[in-house]
Write a protein that binds this DNA or RNA. Structure first.
Length: 694
DNA sequence: GATCCTCGAGTTCG
DNA sequence: CTCGAGGATC
């Protein structure tokens, strides 16, 4: 049986109902965990996620607490990993590098603080003891030894007692000082500084782009990339990777350099280390709980991965009083965020048909909890994406919730293969209409080119009704599918022939809802021309291009008469888009659709407010703006409309040609980019002032 | 012909 | 948000 199969069995074993059962589960857990730890620490190729590993360890710990008589000397709860590789020189840590106990929610954090209070015989009425809070960087712990202020040795954590000598590699990291600065705080003759080596997200993306360009396998995540980079025997390779380092603690010292954790960080800062800026010290545990929950939602805003918050009793004197349990200090705890990355099995790959006929593969996953939600589907983008990552059906795959929400299959875990996995191939025919698919030489996507494909038509109807197009409230995916499948809608104009009675025949419609929807359809007749043009779903004509076209052509009729030359004359329209438009209007069916829409009272001419902005009294003329984050009163689209009304351009990404960045709360990467390029930043008030308040 | 900027298209779960 | 590709620009 493979390790993964045994793991699944252990995971699914119910709580023991006898001593014998408890013992056999404990033995199985020890065996499975030991093997996983080896894979993790030695081969750097985990089969299961850290979260899954943690769950198993906690289960073993609980059983050991309940049945201490079965506690085995070789239980992985005694150790944090296994012996380091042979290829690097082994290094004994002067004082073991401990791991931390975990807290998975606010109550566990409070329980930890309570235990500290009891052990310290803290006055029940008093607040405290004070705690420090630091972000838990998802990187690799290392210990740096300085003698007479000079870096002489750097070691990985290894199993906590023995690590690997990686001095040459650490020296390549710019945020690690090679000589300490003693001008502000005296430096002991010999000092060990501990911290985390990590891969900034931006540098990680750049590295993966480079690896892909060389047709090498990209790293699954920044932590793996950091591990892989530190493990290079050739330190010149490490030097080419933009690793960084945050210092967070001291090893054994002869004389104390500060009274507590928070103050000690300032000393480290004075010595020349980079200290994570998001540190705090609180008098009570409740503020620390708030700190943790705040960061749970904000962690994506950082340029490095964090997987939790480390909470420590701040005062070193109290820390000593609390002491350690086997391999973890009592005075510190790791508050763990819900995992955002996990491994699961890829059950199959389905394909979707988009509105344009584009075929996108979609992963069908064994449901897995990631970041508090259950993920069972994820996009796989296209056939090349699957091939480049060597993803096969049946594989164990790493699934991540990128950005804020959207799950993606990041990598496969080939080590977990049993041999029964099968490579996937793009089907030759459309899953909806069975017509052959086409893939243009040199392009990535496959298309169903059947103009009458029902799947495409459903997506087109949905798009037509969507918020950025005709904005028909209550008209979504489900209704589009129902109406098309019931044969009630065979082309777009049919939407305007719907009556409340038609809708009553469908599932989930009562009189009132049906009437409301028909009223919504009716209201959409007077939408601006650009929205209609966008809604028609002409390839390459998105929202922006539709708006640009409407500036030059004042009706559907004018557009239909335009030839390729007239179209390419418009700024932003090239041959491909022109061709797409000419081809669309060349089809008799499409011309009929426009004519019928007009007959049904749908607006097919430019509205006065869409007319090209005239005059040079426009405050934003010639200026390009980018909006990011949440503004206090304006919505994002409102802000963009405001800019356009005043002759400005509302672009979607920051570049050298951007004149202003309008920034609200929780800005994304755009803010960093703007800062890099030195682009002036406005807040909402600044924008309104510049534009004239009217 | 290469490079940079923008736009289009598709995307998950509750 | 991410990826790929169209368009403009040098």
């Amino acid at each position: 049986m493979t390790l993964l199969e045994r793991t699944r069995i252990v995971q699914n074993t119910p709580e023991p109902d006898s001593l014998a059962a408890a013992r056999s589960i404990m033995d199985a857990l020890v065996a499975v965990l030991t093997e996983h730890a080896e894979r993790y620490y030695q081969d750097d190729a985990p089969l299961i996620s850290d979260a899954e590993y943690d769950v198993l360890v906690r289960r073993l710990q609980a059983l050991e607490n309940a049945h201490p008589e079965f506690l085995r000397p070789d239980s992985p709860t005694h150790r944090v990993g296994s012996a380091p590789l042979d290829s690097f020189e082994k290094v004994q840590h002067a004082e073991a590098m401990l791991s931390l106990g975990n807290a998975f929610d606010a109550d566990e954090l409070r329980a930890w603080h309570d235990r500290c209070r009891r052990r310290l015989e803290w006055d029940a009425e008093a607040e405290g003891p004070a705690v420090s809070t630091e972000l838990k960087i998802d990187g690799l712990a290392v210990a740096l030894t300085y003698e007479n202020g000079v870096l002489v040795r750097a070691a990985t954590r290894g199993d906590g007692r023995v690590g690997e000598n990686i001095t040459a590699n650490i020296r390549t990291i710019r945020s690690v000082p090679l000589r300490l600065d003693s001008s502000r705080h005296p430096v002991p003759d010999r000092v060990e500084v501990r911290g985390e080596v990590y891969f900034p997200k931006s540098a990680f993306e750049a590295l993966n782009d480079r690896l892909r360009a060389q047709e090498l396998k990209p790293f699954a995540n920044p932590r793996n990339a950091a591990a892989g980079s530190l493990r290079q025997l050739d330190s010149t390779i490490t030097a080419g990777r933009d690793l960084a380092f945050f210092a967070y603690s001291l090893g054994p010292v002869s004389e104390p350099v500060a009274a507590g954790q928070r103050a000690m960080l300032d000393v480290l800062d004075g010595w020349g280390f980079s200290i994570n800026p998001e540190v705090a010290r609180f008098e009570g545990i409740e503020e620390a709980v708030t700190f943790c929950s705040n960061w749970t939602g904000k962690r994506d805003a950082l340029d490095y991965e964090i997987d939790g918050v480390v909470v420590k009793i701040d005062d070193f004197r109290l820390q000593r009083q609390l002491g350690n349990v086997s391999n973890a200090p009592r005075w510190a705890v790791a508050f763990k965020f819900p995992a955002r990355e996990s491994t699961t099995r890829l059950l199959g790959i389905l394909v979707n048909v988009g509105r344009t006929g584009m075929i996108t593969p979609e992963a069908e996953l064994e449901p897995v909890q990631i970041g508090g939600v259950t993920v069972s589907q994820a996009t796989l983008h296209n056939a090349d994406y699957i091939r480049d990552r060597d993803i096969r059906i049946g594989d164990t795959v790493v699934v991540k919730r990128a950005g804020d929400v959207i799950p993606a299959v990041v990598a496969s875990v080939p080590e977990a293969r049993t041999g029964s996995e099968v490579a996937w191939e793009m089907p030759g025919t459309c899953p909806a209409c069975q017509q052959p698919l086409e893939r243009i030489e040199g392009e990535v996507d496959s298309f169903c080119v059947n103009g009458a494909c029902p799947a495409q038509f459903i997506r087109l109807v949905e798009h037509f009704a969507s918020r950025d197009a005709m904005d028909i409230e209550g008209f979504g995916t489900k209704l589009a599918a129902q109406l098309v499948e019931a044969g009630r809608i065979a082309d777009l104009p049919d939407i305007y022939g719907l009556t409340p009675d038609d809708l009553l025949e469908l599932d989930g419609f009562a009189r009132k809802k049906a009437e409301k929807l028909v009223a919504g359809i009716d209201a959409s007749r007077s939408r601006p021309l650009a929205r209609l043009l966008f809604g028609l779903g002409i390839r390459h004509v998105g929202r922006t291009t539709a708006e640009v076209l409407v500036q030059q052509f004042d009706s559907m009729a004018a557009l239909g008469k335009a030839d390729a030359d007239a179209l390419t004359a418009v700024d932003g329209i090239g041959e491909v888009i022109a061709r797409s438009l000419v081809d669309w209007f060349a089809l008799e069916t499409n011309r009929k659709i426009v004519a019928r829409l007009a007959d049904l009272g749908v607006n097919v001419a430019r509205l006065p407010e869409e007319a090209p902005a005239a005059g040079d009294d426009l405050p934003f003329a010639g200026k390009t703006f980018v909006v990011t984050g949440t503004l206090p009163t304006l919505g994002r689209t409102e802000a963009q409309d405001y800019i356009k009304q005043r002759g400005g351009k509302a672009a979607s990404s920051v570049s050298a040609r951007t004149d202003y960045l309008v920034m609200g709360e929780n800005p994304g990467s755009k803010a960093d980019k703007a800062a890099e390029l030195g682009i002036p930043v406005l807040d909402e008030a600044g924008l309104l002032e510049l534009g004239g308040r009217s």
